[in-house]
């Protein structure tokens, strides 16, 4: 068993590399298929064909597509993310400016949403069918049924415009003390938590209830094991796999999927960098972001799968 885990991790990592390669290939293909290129996007509405042609040469866009992909790939393999074609800055520099912001937002959201969601799911499962469960069910469904941009806009209207407690924009650069920090992150984190907590709480509840429905828990109940202990000692360990998977998939959304929050609160994160890069057909930047999101997703899923495998020894042989 000690030998199988590292082997598993190694196997997953190597297949992750393959996935990353596939993603980069597909992203490249899509970028080439999209009408318009960086030169046209830079020159904008009022570009002349001669200008576009000249700028293409300048940016190296006149080279064959596969050659350009090869340049990018060989650079990436050696850790060089290349230059952003649309503003001439190094991609690593652009990412460097924004990635910490995204990671911080993701970390705070995770730290708040995961415990709350697990707790809600746990309580709902323990009080299954009761009023608490019913209320939590409606609450989580409502949270997920309100569009994110509506939640964010309502929050701004209430807390920033009417009450004036919180700033409408989230500037990372103006943080001086803990108070500022809380004020700045309150609304973005609240908005993100709405979506994530609902998702994760529902999944936790479902996974636990499946366990509680099973025969061995009924046996424990008949033996007189108290309800708290039944859930925490018997059901929970077996539900870890599914819950971990649910959490991992929800969290993978926190890097690339938070564009609405970044837009409404003007938070300089990596998701809006990606969206800009797509609009600008900035291949190197799109690729770097895609690799980041895909890598984060694969790592999260791998960790979840490892949890699942640890909880179900039969899977180790697969």
């Amino acid at each position: 068993m000690r030998n199988t885990m590292p082997k598993l991790v190694l196997g997953r990592l190597s297949s992750s590399l393959l996935t990353l390669f596939l993603v980069s290939l597909v992203i490249f293909a899509i970028t080439s298929l999209l009408p318009g290129d960086t030169a046209q996007q830079i020159l904008g509405q009022f570009a002349t064909p001669e200008q576009v042609a000249a700028l293409r040469v300048e940016l190296g866009l006149d080279q064959p597509a596969l050659l350009r992909y090869w340049h990018w790939l060989s650079g990436f393999a050696t850790g060089d993310l290349g230059m952003s074609a649309s503003n001439g800055m190094a991609v690593s520099q652009l990412m460097n400016d924004r990635l910490p912001n995204s990671l911080l937002l993701a970390a705070i959201t995770t730290a708040i949403s995961v415990p709350v969601a697990l707790l809600m799911g746990l309580v709902a499962a323990m009080r299954r069918g009761g009023n608490v469960d019913r209320v939590l069910n409606i609450v989580t469904l409502s949270m997920v049924a309100v569009p994110e941009f509506l939640v964010a806009t309502i929050a701004v209207l209430i807390f920033a415009v009417h009450l004036g407690w919180l700033p409408a924009l989230s500037y990372v650069s103006t943080v001086d003390n803990l108070g500022d920090f809380v004020r700045i992150y309150a609304m973005p984190v609240l908005t993100l938590c709405c979506v994530l907590i609902a998702q994760m709480a529902r999944m936790t509840r479902a996974a636990l209830i499946d366990q509680l429905d099973s025969a061995y828990i009924e046996m424990a109940r008949l033996k007189g094991v108290p309800p708290m202990r039944r859930v925490l000692r018997h059901a929970l360990p077996n539900a870890v796999g599914p819950i971990a998977n649910a959490v991992a998939l929800s969290l993978s959304y926190l890097l690339g999927g938070v564009i609405i929050v970044e837009t409404i609160f003007n938070y300089p994160g990596i998701a809006s960098l990606m969206v800009d890069a797509v609009s600008n057909r900035d291949l190197a930047l799109v690729q770097a972001c895609a690799m980041l999101f895909c890598g984060a997703y694969l790592i999260l899923v791998m960790v979840a799968d490892l949890c699942a495998i640890l909880s179900n020894p039969r899977l180790r042989n697969r």
């Binding site: 806009t153 701004v156 209207l157 920033a160 415009v161 004036g164 700033p167 409408a168 924009l169 837009t263 409404i264 609160f265 003007n266």
Partner: peptide, 18 residues
Amino acid sequence: VGISDESARVNALLSGDV
């Protein structure tokens, strides 16, 4: 700064952030 979402821009003005 740039705020592309119009409601967000208006709210930022009304809340005194810009």
